[in-house]
């Protein structure tokens, strides 16, 4: 992971910072440079997304990409946050039986890819099921 690329995205990856268009009242995650609905008529502001939401689909990844070997098999889900914005994230610390469509989840802070011994460590959001 190139360091400047990751650094630029800290607000998104650490805090779920995204955009909200004051014209169409829609929230977007991650941030956008222009509102896809209103384009130049849109008025985007930067906001922190709600830290809770619901699973709308999920999978369990058995064949991981590079950097995720020790984590596999792991759960991955698309989550609809409370403001309607959606995010793809890993699900951790949850009873597999509770990982279902509709389950409520809350953001946690974790390491993302496994670091090697020399590079920087990538941190960011994952979610866990809350009862």
């Amino acid at each position: 992971m190139p360091v400047p690329l990751n650094w630029r995205r800290f607000p998104e990856r650490y805090l779920l910072r995204g955009s909200y268009c004051e014209t169409c009242k829609q929230a977007f995650f991650p941030s956008r440079a222009i509102c896809p609905n209103c384009r130049r008529k849109g008025k985007l502001i930067s906001i922190e997304m709600p830290r809770t939401g619901r699973i709308i689909s999920y999978t369990r990844v058995h064949v991981p990409p590079e950097g995720f070997k020790n984590e596999a098999p792991y759960y991955l889900a698309i989550i609809e946050l409370e403001n309607g914005a959606k995010v793809l994230s890993q699900i951790v610390d949850s009873n597999p039986e509770k990982i279902k469509i509709g389950a409520r989840v809350k953001k946690v802070f974790r390491r993302i890819a496994e670091p090697d011994e020399y590079g920087t460590i990538t941190y960011g959001y994952k979610f866990k099921v809350i009862e």
Binding site: E71, R110, R111, I121, Y123, K126
Partner: peptide, 8 residues
């Protein structure tokens, strides 16, 4: 867990 450290 393996994706946790003193920072997280």
């Amino acid at each position: 867990a393996s994706d946790e450290d003193a920072c997280t």
